[in-house]
Structures are given as C-alpha cells and as structure tokens.
Amino acid sequence: MSTPKAGADGDERGVDDAVRALLLLMPRMVGRVKRIPLPEALRSFDLAPRHLSLLSYLLFDGPMTVNELAGRLEVAPTTVSLMVGELNRQGILERREDEADRRRRIIAIAPDQQPAIAGWLAPGAAAWRTALTPLTPEQRRMFVDTLLAYEAAVTADGR
C-alpha cells in the first residue's frame, strides 16, 4: 500500500487501515473454519467445500429440487445432480418423488444424517447470527454485498 489512492471521500488512510485489518483477519478466520472438526458420523465420507454449501441450503431451507438447489448455488443443474447422486449413494441425501409432480425429485438430508450435519454447521451459523444480529437490515445487506464484491474482485484477478 505504498501509493494509496484517495476514495470519493478522500479517506485513503481509513481504507488502508481497514484493508490491513482484513488482510490480518481473513487468514485467521479461514484457519479457524478449517479446524472445525467433521463429526465422527461424517468422517468416512469424502465431503468437500462444495458439499458444505449444498448441505447448508438443505439444512436451513429444507428439502428442494435439483433446479432450486442449482439456482441457489449458482451452478448448472447437472452439477448439482452429480453432487446429489454422489451424496445419495453415500446415504447422506435422499431423493423422493414430488407429490405435486411425480417427474420431479425432492432432495433432502437423510434423517439419520440430520443431527451430525446440523451439529457440524450449527456453530458457524451461531457465530454469524451473533455477528449479524446487532446490525440493521441495511448494514447486513452491505456486509454481504461487500463480501460478494471481494469475492468477485479476487475471482477477476484469476485467484
């Protein structure tokens, strides 16, 4: 940060201080998240970060179709279908017919895996609730938008 550029409000020092704080904070946060132990019941499965997002949606929002999951995960339905097939074969997820349209399949966490997955994801959800609850809805939206902008900027840099 040898040559700071002034922002619209001329507060380049404040931006640099925030960037410095985040550059120090992010590795600690990532390190802590990586150290969250996988519950014993899930250790025999080959779960990857892509599975975490899928399982989070199903845990917090309930059963849904492959197309609904694909829309939320912002990936192609074929990608979700492959993940669901893999997790279904391992007994983590279950597929059932949609009573309203028998051509569609509803995806859900297998009941016997629900407690382990909830236990695995609950501490992170509780920490986010603690951090976000004091904020106004507008502040929460700004926080999420800022993280999304950071992700887009890092992605644009090819990282």
Results as ranks from 00 to 15, higher is better:
23 L>S: 10
23 L>Y: 09
23 L>I: 07
23 L>C: 13
23 L>D: 14
24 L>V: 07
24 L>P: 06
24 L>E: 14
25 L>T: 08
25 L>F: 07
25 L>E: 09
25 L>K: 07
26 M>Y: 06
26 M>Q: 08
27 P>Q: 03
27 P>W: 00
27 P>A: 05
27 P>K: 03
28 R>V: 02
28 R>M: 03
28 R>W: 00
29 M>E: 04
29 M>G: 05
30 V>T: 02
30 V>L: 01
30 V>A: 02
30 V>C: 02
30 V>F: 00
31 G>P: 00
32 R>E: 08
34 K>W: 04
34 K>N: 12
34 K>R: 11
34 K>C: 11
34 K>L: 09
35 R>D: 11
35 R>F: 04
35 R>W: 01
35 R>N: 05
36 I>R: 11
36 I>V: 14
37 P>G: 15
37 P>H: 15
37 P>D: 15
37 P>I: 13
38 L>A: 15
38 L>W: 14
40 E>G: 10
41 A>C: 01
41 A>S: 02
41 A>M: 02
41 A>D: 05
41 A>H: 01
41 A>I: 02
42 L>F: 03
42 L>W: 04
42 L>E: 04
43 R>N: 10
43 R>Q: 13
43 R>G: 11
44 S>G: 12
44 S>C: 12
44 S>V: 11
45 F>I: 07
45 F>A: 12
45 F>C: 12
45 F>H: 13
45 F>E: 12
46 D>I: 08
46 D>R: 10
47 L>R: 11
47 L>S: 09
48 A>W: 13
48 A>R: 15
48 A>P: 13
48 A>E: 15
50 R>V: 14
50 R>N: 12
51 H>Q: 04
51 H>N: 08
52 L>F: 14
53 S>D: 12
53 S>V: 07
53 S>W: 05
54 L>D: 05
55 L>F: 00
55 L>Y: 00
56 S>I: 06
56 S>A: 13
57 Y>T: 03
57 Y>A: 03
57 Y>V: 04
57 Y>W: 05
58 L>C: 00
59 L>D: 01
60 F>R: 13
60 F>S: 15
61 D>R: 06
61 D>L: 04
62 G>H: 02
62 G>T: 04
62 G>D: 04
62 G>E: 03
63 P>V: 06
63 P>E: 15
63 P>F: 12
63 P>W: 08
64 M>I: 02
65 T>V: 03
65 T>F: 05
65 T>L: 05
65 T>I: 07
66 V>W: 09
66 V>E: 10
67 N>W: 09
67 N>V: 11
67 N>C: 11
67 N>S: 15
68 E>Q: 13
68 E>D: 14
68 E>P: 11
69 L>V: 09
69 L>F: 08
69 L>Y: 08
69 L>G: 09
69 L>A: 12
69 L>S: 10
69 L>C: 09
70 A>H: 01
70 A>L: 02
70 A>I: 01
70 A>P: 03
70 A>N: 03
70 A>R: 01
71 G>F: 06
71 G>H: 08
71 G>I: 03
